[in-house]
Design a protein around this nucleic acid. Sequence first.
DNA 1: GGTGGGTATATAGGTTTCCTATATGACCCG
DNA 2: CGGGTCATATAGGAAACCTATATACCCACC
Lengths: 153, 153
Amino acid sequence: MTRSAHTRADATDLVATTLLTRASRLTRLLMRSGDRELSRTEAGLLSTLLDRPRRITELAATEALAQPTVTQLVDKLERRGLVVRERSGTDGRVVLVSISPSGRERLDAVRAQLRAQMREAVRELGDDELAELAAASETLGRLIEALQQRVNA
Amino acid sequence: MTRSAHTRADATDLVATTLLTRASRLTRLLMRSGDRELSRTEAGLLSTLLDRPRRITELAATEALAQPTVTQLVDKLERRGLVVRERSGTDGRVVLVSISPSGRERLDAVRAQLRAQMREAVRELGDDELAELAAASETLGRLIEALQQRVNA
DNA sequence: GGTGGGTATATAGGTTTCCTATATGACCCG
DNA sequence: CGGGTCATATAGGAAACCTATATACCCACC
């Protein structure tokens, strides 16, 4: 419904040149409003753990972070009591990270805060635009998976 | 067209809980592949300057960065010859930053690289999904403006 | 049953990207 | 022409990453 051309090439160009930039602007704008309880990466990691416990390397792959970065992140979250580290019974090298009850609480609180901010922000958007954003969020998930598979190959 | 609920509340929640996280994952994935010529923030700033020259404070507002951060960024870009600093004739306090010819070149090169990566990544997406992403990129722009106005008020 | 190559995590150390607080200098108004 | 305000610059530091490497465990094979 916009005037932008809808050929694949044009759409790809638009996404390549604007999506990343705008996403990071949006992040700075939202983070600026004193959330502070969880960084966006910490929130992402805890969200992934909601599903089920994961190994450090699994987390590194899905979050697109280097393995030592995840170790550090888990250190910090563990010190705050938000995640639990357990060694696997079957393989002594493996660490299984799971979210703790208070981790769930904290994540919920941060999400509620974000939701409130987002509710304010989307007030000016039409229903169709908002639905578009929601759909795009899901599509982004698929795009990320496609990229991750390409990296592993 | 997806199975996700389309009430405003649900869409808002989905966007709030997934968009930021996924966007930053995507950024890490794309930046990992050795772009290095320009950081995403530098690219964003140069893109803004394509339009017309801007003051430091203007740039800080549109890029959602603190003013000293923009001064630093412009320092670095100026040393590399990608932007030009000029003092305004009418007001001795203001600095007008504009993009240089070689800044345009550099930005084009980086964008071409990003386009190529993106072309690969979106290969697995359907036409409608890609169009959705493109539309969402534009909607994000509007969302950001809404947030910025709220900040200024 | 111990040695060696591969795998999972941890540690060390450094870089980049941002921030806050404050200094400097130019404008403007009484 | 002094005092407040506005635009930029400087100083210093924090956060979120990274690479390179160490440690500890698994497993297969002789």
